[in-house]
């Protein structure tokens, strides 16, 4: 499965704050996640659902992916969250505390019910789920394959660290194993891997170091709690000039092959397979978003026509 969708930056926006919600269209993140969970006190869940719903309904000129973090399946809130939010047509749901594949299957079934009720395409609502505990990490390989809707798995270091009963060191050595396990599970399942938030918004240097670290590990993106973190992350994730050059060559080769009607694409005598194409597309999307290239990616050229 290919993932041309760029999900470098996933910004949490509190669901009960108009001053933040209405800035969603101008935040330069790839994804915004409206938060009905941790950012909203229990007594305000009803008001936050209404506010978020009305905001999403009015946000018709969508210029980024929009997810809503609902409350966990262990709370009395998540059904009302879905019932209020889904009619406004977000792109998907961010599911917290997804520690077992059954959690995903359960939410998948619910989303199907809502899709039938709302009369929209089955599978329309995507899921990004967060793994937040030791048990969740141990189950992650199955979780990553538990729903067709799952486009990415996120990792929540805050909860995981609490679960381990340790203080969270900023250096992150205690996160080596869960990050690697989550990443491997995502890659094996062909979905994206999203790293945890950096909680200290005032420490931009520490944040940058962590971004560099997770880029080396291979994460596709990172959840963010402050809009100021977006540019730093994008800067770190920016492709190098030689990567861009190579990606442009790959796309040219594909275009050439399509024009000649051949299904086999090769570059410099080497065959170009699907993962190379996917990577080239990601590099170019990322470069384009940063103004480093002005090539538009034509999906039909890259992947052929739908029936091809």
């Amino acid at each position: 499965m290919l993932h041309p969708r760029l999900r470098r930056s996933l910004l949490y926006v509190p669901g009960n704050m108009p001053s933040m919600l209405q800035n969603i269209p101008i935040f330069p993140s790839d994804v915004c996640i409206i938060d009905l969970e941790d950012a909203v006190p229990r007594t305000e869940k009803d008001a936050a659902r209404l506010l978020s719903r009305r905001f999403i309904e009015g946000y018709t000129q969508r210029n980024k992916e929009l997810y809503v973090r609902i409350n966990g399946l262990d709370t009395p809130y998540f059904r009302d969250d879905l019932a209020q939010i889904l009619p406004a047509m977000p792109d998907g749901i961010r599911l917290p505390k997804c520690e077992h594949p059954s959690h995903l299957r359960r939410i998948d079934d619910l989303l199907t019910e809502f899709e039938e009720y709302l009369g929209c395409e089955i599978g329309r609502f995507k899921i990004i789920a967060s793994v937040e505990s030791a048990q969740g990490i141990l189950n992650v390989n199955e979780t990553a394959r538990a729903s067709e809707r799952l486009v990415a798995l996120g990792f929540s270091a805050e909860d995981y660290t609490a679960n381990l009963q340790i203080d969270r060191p900023k250096t992150g050595e205690h996160l080596v194993v869960p990050r690697q396990l989550l990443l491997m599970a995502c890659r094996a399942a062909g979905i994206q891997a999203i790293d945890t938030v950096w909680a200290d918004a005032s420490d931009q240097e520490g944040f940058r170091r962590e971004c560099e670290h997770i880029k080396v590990l291979g994460f596709d993106g990172k959840s963010l709690i402050n809009p100021r973190q977006i540019d730093v992350l994008h800067d770190v994730m920016a492709p190098k000039p030689e990567e861009i050059d190579y990606a442009l060559q790959v796309v040219d080769a594909i275009r050439g092959a399509r024009e000649q009607g051949t299904g086999v694409v090769s570059l410099g005598g080497k065959m170009i397979d699907a993962p190379v194409v996917a990577r080239a597309v990601r590099v170019l999307l990322s470069a384009k978003s940063l103004g480093l290239v002005d090539t538009d990616i034509d999906e039909r050229v890259i992947y052929g026509d739908a029936d091809a």
């Binding site: 008001a47 209404l50 506010l51 009305r54 905001f55």
Partner: peptide
């Protein structure tokens, strides 16, 4: 200085409560 969507949501929330 709320925008219309927020007025809509807050009025409805108060009424429902």
């Amino acid at each position: 200085g709320a925008l219309d969507y927020a007025i809509d949501a807050r009025v409805e929330a108060a009424l429902r409560r």
